[in-house]
Nucleic acid binder design. Sequence first.
DNA 1: CTGCATGCAAAATGTTTGCACTCTA
DNA 2: TAGAGTGCAAACATTTTGCATGCAG
Lengths: 128, 128
Amino acid sequence: MSTRRETVRQALHRSSGFRSAQDLYASLRADGAKIGLTTVYRALQALTDAGEVDVLMTNEGEAVYRACATRTHHHHLVCRSCGKAVEIEGPAVEDWADELAARHGFVDLTHTLELFGTCSDCAAKARD
Amino acid sequence: MSTRRETVRQALHRSSGFRSAQDLYASLRADGAKIGLTTVYRALQALTDAGEVDVLMTNEGEAVYRACATRTHHHHLVCRSCGKAVEIEGPAVEDWADELAARHGFVDLTHTLELFGTCSDCAAKARD
DNA sequence: CTGCATGCAAAATGTTTGCACTCTA
DNA sequence: TAGAGTGCAAACATTTTGCATGCAG
């Protein structure tokens, strides 16, 4: 069942970085897959609901998705050139955030933290 | 000159939290201001370019703006209920991020970090 | 007078939804 | 056959842009 949805899941797992729905759709089509943009969105929504992928918004307002290795809370170090992402743990940051929020009387805390840079591969290419 | 643009700037400075362009536009109109949505967007764009306001994307893909007290790099502790925001400094986080990125071979690092919670006022109201 | 500021309407973008159709279990 | 999965087209929301008008210096 759900062959198209499975296709999306696999495409995402095959990628090492964050991908936008549009981008994912384009590459699936380029690979000859018979799939509609709607289905890509719905598949990504389902995967997100299932907690199987992480989502974040780019500064351009586009949602990007990534199949993550761990289900636990974590952050990413993302290459702004090729999109490759490394999962990172930041216990120190979580503690710092909790302490800080408590000091200001805020409760029920959540946070977003993403690091962006240029990975060694892309930095090397840029030196051409 | 530029009376409308100034209106937007002041409205933003009057607010203690992040506001969306649409939201800002609506409240300006509600206050009787004769201003167009386009102008609000253009004013916010100009203020952003000038480094006078901070911008961030909500999880819904909407851009929200805030006039910040400091021009230096900082983060926010935002009330997800009323939007009120407290500016915070996180030198420890910056250092941690730099060290981590270097370890993974990433250069030219930037990051996003925002804390969301419920402020004491809103938490109190929620107990009604 | 000259040029930036303004605003309306239309375009562009990313995402969601209505609805009919098609598989699959 | 029943129900989920799929996809096209249209709806939506936010933001940007084209273009004509208006105001300030």
